[in-house]
Design a protein around this nucleic acid. Structure first.
Lengths: 190, 190
DNA sequence: CATTGATTTCAGTAATTTCTGAAAACAATG
DNA sequence: CATTGTTTTCAGAAATTACTGAAATCAATG
């Protein structure tokens, strides 16, 4: 591997992190390299930069394409494929979220739905179903939120983030006012 | 493996999913089993239920404990350790988020910070740093939001989720009103 | 349609991760 | 402090995953 030290550290870190993220080392390294490079790279550039086999690069690029994480570019009078990542980090985040949901959440949700259709054959199964139902409800709430939020423009998304928990403080205030209004007729509930 | 069919399907699914989630099959299966069982299980119960070696169970339980995903219980007049998962799925979600952040985000953030302290030695490095800075900014925004939101009570969290993108629609309305107020003096910007 | 340059596939190998059984460590009890 | 029941450790075996090099495929060009 023959890269400027800073880039090398970054690439190596992404490689190590790869396993924790469910992608393999090479895929992580290639992604990091493409992300931080100022211009698109072709497969041979990557072979050289990371000292790995041509076929490994081919496989890993295919994997990255399956994740929609790289963009294919062409350079005039050059038949080779060149690759980059999107410029906009927010767009990258969106893609990542979408793909992880597809791979890591959706299959579970569909298994849960299927298992909850079945008629429990014992007390043990009845309890298990109740637990699965709790899990299903949670996941559905989360994905509903996600579906709602994913269409937002970057700027709005940033606003939402900055707002954070403040939103609920606002709602709390509203609730207090409402319950204050009720107090006259309905005394303390709990 | 000798479990009621429903439970078995669930356990097997979590096992398969495990690899995508960066945990291994056995750990996933044990977690699923504990999650869906109506009472705490001891190591030998798990050995029997999943037909795996005692030592594998020991290692995997240790892993789950490191993730704070299981609760240790004791049963009167029984020296063995029994395990369950927390009842509250929201609490489980919180733990999961916290642990994943610790393992998957924080290390990257600290590498980014370190690399951004360095003085770039070339144009290539300068560009790389600019990219890393973009990534850092994004991650910091996300973790800031997370730190803000993680303290919320379950009910408030649910409210926040249900609100979803509506929050920004509210803010948009406000913006429109504000810009309407400005229109008289400042004509179209773009 | 042969040539050249590029990419992909795939069988075999290497590396890594997971799992096991045997032994060690631990802890409660008489 | 020996006994019994329990958990942990760890070296090696098994399984899985990643990587390579050689051959096959593909696609543009004269």
């Amino acid at each position: 591997m023959n890269l400027p030290p800073l880039l090398q550290s970054f690439v190596l870190h992404f490689g190590e992190m790869g396993s924790r993220w469910g992608i393999n080392r090479t895929v992580g390294q290639i992604y990091a390299l493409l992300y931080a490079s100022s211009n698109p790279l072709c497969a041979d550039d990557i072979v050289e930069a990371l000292s790995i086999s041509r076929s490994n690069v081919s496989m890993s690029l295919r994997e990255l394409q399956a994740w929609n994480l790289v963009i294919l570019k062409h350079i005039p009078d050059d038949r080779r494929d060149y690759f980059t990542t999107p410029d906009d980090v927010w767009q990258i985040l969106r893609t990542l979220a979408e793909e992880r949901k597809k791979r890591e959440v959706d299959p579970t949700l569909s298994v849960l739905r299927e298992l909850l259709m079945q008629t429990p054959g014992s007390e043990e199964e009845r309890h298990a179903q109740a637990r699965l139902a709790e899990m299903q409800t949670l996941i559905e709430q989360l994905t509903k939120w996600y579906d709602d939020v994913k269409h937002l423009e970057t700027e709005q998304l940033a606003t939402l983030l900055n707002l954070g928990a403040k939103v609920t403080r606002l709602l709390d205030a509203k609730d207090r006012i409402v319950s204050l209004g009720r107090k006259r007729t309905e005394p303390k509930t709990s």
